[in-house]
């Protein structure tokens, strides 16, 4: 916590990232947005022992222990974005609540592709959800983290940690630029249950549509709160059983037989 080296580095990263500022560039018919938070993240990664060797293992562990606290101010800001827009958010309640079911898109798309790629039961852990902390805990509870399912969920968890923020920032930007969605729908969809992924997606959208920025941020924050509330139960009661079922079906299609009981 009193590791002044990482605070100093963070300050320098913030200044450099903000000096570069928001970059917008046209690709084909749409505009892609890059945000300072993405540069801060990438420059931070470049300081690691793998690249520039500016920070060591202790610095990285210290920084890691601070992340949950660094998020709190942003959470307070989200609250203050929801407050003034609350009447409008409640008006859009049905859309906000039902879009939560869209989180099942992970397994509808993920399981078939995972099985076609040749993954076995790793597929269930990997594709049943976006694999944030509550989902890792759930899979650990149901199958154990040493199991194939556990390896799957940990793999996606690590991917989400390392490049999830960048991915969602760009994904939202691409979707807004090239797909026929209203920014409100894309903001609601951003609440996948991870504050940083949601922030990256909503950040891109609000840079693209400054006039709607407050409403977009409020929808994103509200949807992310909902995902936090219902995510675990949806995984346990809907996503996991559905993943098991779809996994068996896909296994039949690919290998022509039901999956054998694992004998490891």
């Amino acid at each position: 916590m009193k590791n002044w080296k990482i605070h100093g580095i963070a300050l320098i990263l913030v200044i450099i990232a903000e000096l570069i500022g928001i970059i917008k560039f046209k690709v084909g018919p749409g505009t892609i947005v890059l945000l300072p938070m993405l540069y801060a993240l990438i420059f931070g990664i470049l300081l690691s022992p793998k690249f520039l060797k500016v920070v060591n293992m202790k610095d990285m562990t210290d920084a890691n222990s601070l992340i949950t606290v660094t998020l709190l101010l942003l959470m307070a800001r989200y609250g203050t974005l929801i407050g003034p827009s609350l009447p409008k958010i409640i008006q859009s309640g049905p859309a906000l609540i039902l879009q939560e079911l869209g989180n099942l898109g992970t397994l509808l798309l993920g399981i078939p592709i995972a099985v076609l790629l040749g993954l076995k039961r790793e597929a269930i852990g990997a594709a049943h959800s976006v694999a944030r902390e509550p989902n890792v805990a759930l899979i650990g509870d149901v199958y154990g983290l040493d199991s194939a399912e556990g390896q799957g969920v940990m793999g996606v968890y690590i991917c989400g940690t390392v490049f999830g923020t960048i991915f969602f920032g760009l994904l939202a930007s691409f979707a807004a630029a090239y797909l026929p969605f209203h920014p409100y729908a894309l903001a609601m969809a951003a609440g996948v249950g991870s504050a940083s992924m949601m922030t990256a997606a909503v950040g891109s959208l609000s840079a693209m549509y400054p006039d709607m920025a407050n409403m977009l941020q409020a929808y994103g924050a509200a949807s992310n709160m909902l995902s936090g509330l219902d995510g675990l139960y949806m995984s346990l009661w809907i996503a996991l059983p559905a993943s098991e079922w779809l996994y068996k079906k896909m296994h039949m299609i690919k290998y022509g037989q039901a999956p054998q009981k694992e004998v490891e």
Partner: peptide, 11 residues
């Protein structure tokens, strides 16, 4: 937030 996260991700 992302500056701290970036430093931490190295591990």
């Amino acid at each position: 937030i992302l500056a701290y996260a970036g430093i931490a991700i190295g591990k």
